[in-house]
Design a protein around this nucleic acid. Structure first.
Lengths: 142, 142
DNA sequence: GGGCAATCAGACCGATCTGGTCTGATTGGA
DNA sequence: TCCAATCAGACCAGATCGGTCTGATTGCCC
């Protein structure tokens, strides 16, 4: 129930990248310097985010990275899923996985789906753009 | 963003215990047999739940465990926190922890608090009693 | 009253995964 | 053509998780 450090760093790095607004290219080292994340770790995270389609990278001198989409179109859920894979609290949440021996007699499974949806919704309603605002606009029920 | 197996098992075990309704004492081995969880692992989970105050245990012959509270008063959040510790997505969520080097310049922190609250709310609104019903009653915003 | 059986409780160990570092491949500019 | 800067992938140490085992405690039976 705890986010991995990589995912946490990824959110911070994406927030820093969003602050440089779309068109400008920044290097992973620059973002690392701004955020305090170790440079090699930042490079690794950038690679994962690029592979997931959230960032667009250019190699070579003067290269760098930029947001593949507007900041408003990237949510925390996107970032978390890019780093940690699909958001699935229990193994039985995503159809196709049948690792659970109970399968059918388990009364818990349908409820996990609802809880999982609530969590994904909570993460999906926070966009990168909103991270730059001072007021909280998550739409959280709490 | 994935629940540990221990916490998942704990929910299943608590659900099985709740099905035996309060007064009756059942052994950890019985719950393990009903749920398919390995016996030693079930014992370990029972110990954790007992230490957290969610179960009441009795040693000796004919001993066993029973819910320390009515099933309606135990939520998924209680179980998850008993196994995995406080629900805190990022390290900066709970006041007192200052592991983050950004601390103050980080625009992300206040948003994590809101997201964390939404998740805790989603887990807190599902009680053990509701796990026995067929219809979903999570109160999830999604 | 003593012994036994059943149970929970804690300590130990192996495996998996995460986090971090390093080296190599690619690309653009001088 | 060479060089510098950058991303991309492979490698390794560390920590955490999951599972198993043994021990301590307690109630029942003889």
């Amino acid at each position: 129930m705890k986010l991995s450090s990589l995912a946490d760093y990824a959110v911070v790095l994406m927030g820093a990248a969003a602050r440089h607004c779309g068109g400008v290219r920044v290097s992973a080292a620059m973002l690392a310097a701004e955020t305090g994340v170790p440079v090699p770790t930042a490079q690794k995270i950038v690679s994962l985010l690029t592979r997931a389609g959230l960032l667009r990278s250019s190699r070579g001198t003067g290269g760098g990275i930029q947001l593949a989409r507007p900041a408003a179109a990237i949510s925390l859920a996107d970032i978390v899923e890019a780093i940690e894979g699909p958001i699935a609290m229990a193994a039985c949440v995503d159809a196709g996985r049948h690792d659970c021996a109970l399968e059918g007699s388990c009364k818990v499974q349908p409820h996990w789906g609802a809880v999982n949806g609530a969590i994904k919704s909570a993460l999906g309603q926070v966009s990168l753009a909103s991270l730059s605002h001072d007021h909280i606009t998550t739409g959280a029920p709490a």
